[in-house]
């Protein structure tokens, strides 16, 4: 009973964060991270990037065996090849990204003040193609995932460093993402915070629920369920569908804003993409 009461108060606490009227990302970040640090006192901060494997020894042992021959290996090789393959005009993706794409993924997604929108690596891959006279790629699956995985891998170990500039449009995007995270949706009436906040660490059926802190550090990630590497928007799609909510399109404004808030909340967690999950 005591445990039950604890669960209930923590839900209130987490959802309470959602509706503070004044937008204060830095304050939100402290509250959010302290919540998980208290909830999982035995998990080292950096290890949150390993999701459920930071919580469960048996699962972690199995996972470490998988990682000896990581199932994303071929995709990553593809990504490197595609990244370096010149467009018809002779240029490569490196020309579109700061520092040639090296050590930049930790700063994504970012708010592009000029364009008034949240930019992700996948979005900029397609913008780069367009600028160089190439056709756009499909989101969520396929070559774009490989290229993005490679760019992310070039920032391995860099700490997540997303910024919310003091700009009304940036704050609005951040708040939209935050609302998404805490809003109940779907016939089953869950918010992201329900499963990955108060009940994280618990079992839903046979599955451990991962804490939201650290969830963004290893995407694009390989999932055995997909048999492929996929973007975080593909994962959002799955989490929306399982509560019978209508998912949004890859790179939709809704998912980019969600990713902005979600990744900002993981500031400080080292990048470890691509990851592997079941």
């Amino acid at each position: 009973m005591k445990k039950l009461l604890l669960i209930v108060t923590s839900i209130v606490m987490v959802t309470g964060v959602a509706f503070s009227v004044q937008a204060d990302p830095a304050q939100d970040l402290r509250t959010f991270q302290n919540y998980y640090k208290k909830k999982f006192p035995n998990v080292k901060f950096d290890d949150f990037g390993n999701g459920i494997y930071a919580l469960n020894k048996r699962l972690r042992d199995e996972w470490e065996i998988t990682m000896e021959f990581p199932p994303f290996g071929l995709t990553l090789e593809d990504g490197e090849r595609l990244f370096n393959k010149p467009f018809k005009n002779g240029k490569t993706y490196a020309s579109c990204f700061k520092n040639g794409g090296r050590n930049i993924a930790q700063n994504y997604p970012y708010f592009d003040v000029k364009r008034g929108m949240v930019k992700t690596i996948e979005l900029e891959i397609n913008e780069c193609r367009k600028r160089n006279g190439e056709k756009k790629l499909k989101y969520k699956k396929g070559p774009i995932v490989a290229i993005s995985a490679y760019i992310h891998s070039m920032a391995e170990g860099k700490r997540t460093n997303v910024k919310v500039p003091n700009n009304p449009a940036a704050l609005a995007a951040y708040n939209k993402g935050k609302e998404f995270f805490y809003a109940r949706r779907g016939q089953l009436n869950f918010s992201c915070a329900h499963c990955h906040g108060a009940t994280s660490g618990m079992m839903i059926g046979g599955n451990v629920l991962s804490p939201a802190l650290g969830q963004t550090s290893h995407f694009p990630a390989y999932r055995s369920k997909w048999g492929a590497v996929g973007t975080i928007h593909r994962r959002y799609t799955g989490c929306n569908k399982q509560v019978r909510a209508k998912p949004f399109k890859g790179q939709s404004k809704e998912y980019r804003n969600l990713q902005y808030f979600h990744t900002y909340m993981s500031n400080g967690i080292p990048l470890n993409a691509p990851g592997t999950r079941f």
Binding site: M202, G205, G206
Partner: peptide, 21 residues
């Protein structure tokens, strides 16, 4: 119902969750 996702129930046919009592 999928109650087993969150509740242990005697006779349950799948691994039960523990989100609910």
């Amino acid at each position: 119902g999928n109650c087993l996702a969150c509740h242990a129930i005697v006779g349950g046919v799948r691994p039960a969750g523990n989100i609910g009592p």
